[in-house]
């Protein structure tokens, strides 16, 4: 099948939706894309346009369907081959909106071997590429953590928060100093992300600092910071660190002494009861 025949297997909207879709024809087309290797993938990627610049419904559908179908046990060779082909197109001169789509497909089928190509966009603010890049790397998992560590000190603006959060998603204990510094940041969302990241790595030794910060925060910040302290206590209890968990619950009870905090004190009591 040539590229046109492959793409014609995928439907165009009828009455606004993709109602007439031929499963067998699509599956055969996907097999052709996989067996066509890097060149076939590139040919189809070349037909994907910046959103709003024309009709690319079929090429997007074909690439996504292939990214999905190379998943699962026993497809490692096809998956790596297709993901490598996709990643190689990120080096080309393409619109950022198209690169965003490619990265999102790598979130589905990419692996550690493609991480370098994806991580190149961690600090790229255009078309939210930093966000797509971080999410794809987070989906691939812990093997990508070094990219976040390298990108964070260079990050500014929106990517900074996203990369910091990524380090928390990956529960990177080596980034503890980043998290502690973030907790003192002037930006509330960075501070909250710092507390959340410390909770994610179950950092018992930082519990006092986290509690202290939760007391300083106001409004939404206080709600979330306190929640992260509760979550830390639960994680520590689950890890067998009952003494540390107990300390957190007791301190929450003491520090949240206002009338409107009654439910927090009750929650701490429930946590304490569960420790026994």
């Amino acid at each position: 099948m040539n590229t046109k025949e492959i793409l014609n297997a995928f439907p165009l909207p009828e009455g606004k939706i993709l109602r007439n879709i031929d499963k067998n024809a699509c599956e055969r087309a996907i097999e052709q894309i996989i067996s066509g290797g890097r060149n076939k993938t590139r040919e189809i990627i070349d037909l994907i346009l910046e959103p709003g610049n024309g009709d690319d419904i079929r090429p997007r559908h074909a690439i996504h369907a292939t990214a999905i179908r190379v998943g699962g046990t026993g497809k490692e060779i096809e998956r790596n081959s297709f993901a490598s082909a996709l990643a190689s197109t990120l080096n080309d001169d393409r619109p950022k909106g198209v690169k965003g789509f490619i990265i999102r497909q790598l979130q589905i089928c990419g692996g550690a071997k493609q991480a370098n190509s994806i991580a190149h966009f961690l600090n790229d603010s255009e078309e939210h590429l930093y966000e797509y890049s971080a999410q794809a790397l987070e989906a691939i998992g812990i093997l990508t953590v070094e990219h976040f560590r390298k990108a964070y000190p260079l990050a500014k603006g929106a990517p900074r928060l996203t990369i910091l959060q990524g380090l928390g998603v990956l529960q990177d204990k080596k980034s503890r100093q980043f998290f502690l510094s973030a907790m003192q940041d002037s930006d509330r969302e960075i501070r909250l992300a710092g507390i959340w990241c410390l909770m994610r790595i179950s950092s018992a030794k930082d519990a006092e600092l986290m509690l202290s910060q939760s007391r300083k925060e106001k409004g939404w910040g206080r709600i979330k910071a306190t929640a992260y302290c509760f979550e830390l206590a639960e994680k520590l209890a689950k890890n067998g660190q009952s003494k540390e968990a107990k300390g957190i619950y007791i301190k929450i009870k003491k520090s949240h002494s206002e009338k409107q905090d009654a439910y927090l004190r009750e929650s701490a009591d429930r946590g304490l009861a569960q420790l026994q």
């Binding site: 993709l18 031929d22 997007r60 996504h64 369907a65 999905i68």
Partner: peptide, 12 residues
Amino acid sequence: FAPPSHPEVTGM
């Protein structure tokens, strides 16, 4: 039993 889905929109 379903055909390959589209990346953005739900379908058949």
